[in-house]
Computed example of a mutant assay.
Amino acid sequence: MSTAVATRSGARRIRLDVRLLVLALVMAGAVGYLMYTGLQGTAASYFVTVSELQARASEVDGRRVRVGGDVVTGSIVRGGPGEPIHFRIGDGTSELEVVYSGVLPDIFAEGRHVIVEGLYRNGQPVQADSVLTQCPSRFEAAPTASSS
């Protein structure tokens, strides 16, 4: 009889161990999936400069891009209500025309660093569907008065 009791208790232990192993694998898989999707979002936050984009123009033609640069002074052309806004961004070496139909961030201005996302076609303006503006630092040095 003691052999039958030992066999039943051993079978229960194996079933319990298998259940714990399956539960641990499911949890590890869930954590791995969350880490993978989190890293995908992080990788998407990178952007290229205008010069880098133009150097790879043939590779990215007809694809979505994320490009950053400074809004070129004097390039902002605001249309009427419902019309797109045209502006150029540059990186000191190259410039790129952008067309955007959405609402611009409040701090959008000439000289401000922006990141635009949208469709790139070689020789045409980027059809942006997103414009992100870098927030100015609150801790900039106050301008000094020059004495004459």
Results as ranks from 00 to 15, higher is better:
residue 26 V to S: 10
residue 148 S to R: 15
residue 86 H to Y: 12
residue 50 V to Q: 04
residue 101 S to Y: 03
residue 130 S to G: 06
residue 113 H to R: 12
residue 49 T to N: 06
residue 91 D to C: 06
residue 92 G to S: 11
residue 69 G to R: 05
residue 119 L to P: 00
residue 143 P to Y: 05
residue 77 V to A: 09
residue 17 D to H: 05
residue 52 E to W: 00
residue 86 H to G: 10
residue 125 P to D: 10
residue 143 P to Q: 07
residue 124 Q to M: 05
residue 27 M to C: 13
residue 116 V to N: 04
residue 132 L to C: 05
residue 33 Y to I: 14
residue 130 S to N: 11
residue 23 L to T: 01
residue 92 G to C: 12
residue 35 M to H: 04
residue 2 S to P: 08
residue 23 L to E: 13
residue 136 P to N: 07
residue 98 V to N: 06
residue 131 V to D: 00
residue 108 F to T: 05
residue 22 V to S: 13
residue 79 G to T: 09
residue 36 Y to L: 15
residue 44 A to T: 10
residue 102 G to H: 04
residue 53 L to R: 01
residue 129 D to F: 02
residue 56 R to I: 11
residue 50 V to A: 08
residue 124 Q to N: 02
residue 24 A to R: 07
residue 109 A to R: 14
residue 62 G to S: 03
residue 1 M to R: 08
residue 145 A to Y: 08
residue 19 R to W: 04
residue 71 V to W: 06
residue 49 T to G: 15
residue 55 A to F: 10
residue 54 Q to P: 07
residue 82 G to N: 06
residue 50 V to I: 08
residue 24 A to V: 06
residue 83 E to P: 03
residue 48 V to Y: 01
residue 131 V to A: 02
residue 13 R to F: 11
residue 89 I to A: 02
residue 147 S to A: 09
residue 27 M to N: 12
residue 101 S to V: 11
residue 34 L to T: 00
residue 107 I to M: 07
residue 84 P to W: 07
residue 78 R to D: 05
residue 98 V to D: 01
residue 133 T to I: 14
residue 68 G to Q: 11
residue 117 E to V: 10
residue 57 A to I: 02
residue 3 T to N: 13
residue 72 V to K: 05
residue 106 D to N: 13
residue 10 G to Y: 06
residue 60 V to G: 02
residue 101 S to D: 15
residue 47 F to N: 14
residue 4 A to V: 12
residue 115 I to S: 09
residue 80 G to C: 02
residue 78 R to K: 08
residue 40 Q to E: 13
residue 90 G to K: 09
